[in-house]
Amino acid sequence: MKARVYVMPKAGVLDPQGKAIGHALEGLGFAGVSDVRAGKVIELDLAETDAAKAKAAAEDMARKLLANTVIESFRVEIA
């Protein structure tokens, strides 16, 4: 079972990387991009076959290591 963990800078936490990407898009002539936030996606291959259990396990991994919940939020998708 595959789990995909999306890790994003928390709302309210400055995201200078996202800001820089926004400026670059503007420089390329893409208008109307009001905000850019940059995060990361971590894909996990899990032996677990129960979707709910796989999700709970991935969330536990995110809390303990994959995200720093002081500055980042996360969301888990099971595929």
Binding site: P9, V13, L14, P16, Q17, A20, N68, V70, I71
Partner: peptide, 16 residues
């Protein structure tokens, strides 16, 4: 900080 021995977080420098 990552070990939880001090609070907070250290982000990318504001200037990048």
């Amino acid at each position: 900080i990552e070990a939880g021995l001090l609070p907070g977080g250290l982000l990318r420098n504001a200037s990048l």
